[in-house]
Design a binder for these strands. Structure first.
Lengths: 93, 93
DNA sequence: AATCTATTTAGAAATATATCTAAATAGATT
DNA sequence: AATCTATTTAGATATATTTCTAAATAGATT
């Protein structure tokens, strides 16, 4: 789970939208899939990549799978960008 | 220059290494290329993508082209990650 | 147990990406 | 002007990615 993998995962707009959607709380694969014009299979593929990279986790309940955000994992990326030259927003540099 | 493009550009390890190399100051395409086991043509291709995404700029002098880092452009990415769940502010955690 | 529901996996096709070699460009030097 | 040097562009190829449809799995309900 290196930086390349994390960034490659975040580089896709569908996956970023999934992450944004999960900000409002855990959701089932089906709920997530319904908000895209993509098949469930395709969304499942994206969920798998997000899970592998550690951005989301899953929790089974009945025959639903709830996905939720793992915000801690974004930190490696933040650290790298800081090192390399970002300063950003509202923060002293 | 959307977020997808920026992140896709940063997702490649060669391009991140180029960025890291440029942290020490402007360098010619040749100098950059020499530090990789890749042809000049390949490195030139990566420099083009980095330039298109706004991460680096070029400055011509004689028949050399110096490339240098544009650190400001990392901010969109930082902003997105913050929104989505990072905490982090450059201090160790 | 049979079936229904939610989701994933497998396989295929289209598109995108990274790399190479060879050729082209553009400026500097002789 | 001829040539050398630094770099990019073009074209080709191999690999990776995204998407689909169809089939498989696993748990819940009847």
């Amino acid at each position: 789970m290196g930086l390349s993998e994390s960034m490659k995962v975040l580089a896709d707009p569908v996956r970023r939208q999934i992450i944004e959607k999960l900000k409002t709380g855990p959701q089932t694969a089906g709920e997530i899939a319904n908000s895209f014009e993509l098949t469930n299979a395709t969304v499942s593929y994206h969920l798998k990549l997000l899970k592998q990279a550690g951005f989301i986790s899953e929790m089974k309940d009945k025959n639903f799978i709830y996905y939720s955000l793992n915000s801690t994992v974004f930190e490696d990326i933040l650290t790298w960008i800081y090192q390399v030259g970002g300063k950003k927003n509202g923060q002293a540099d």
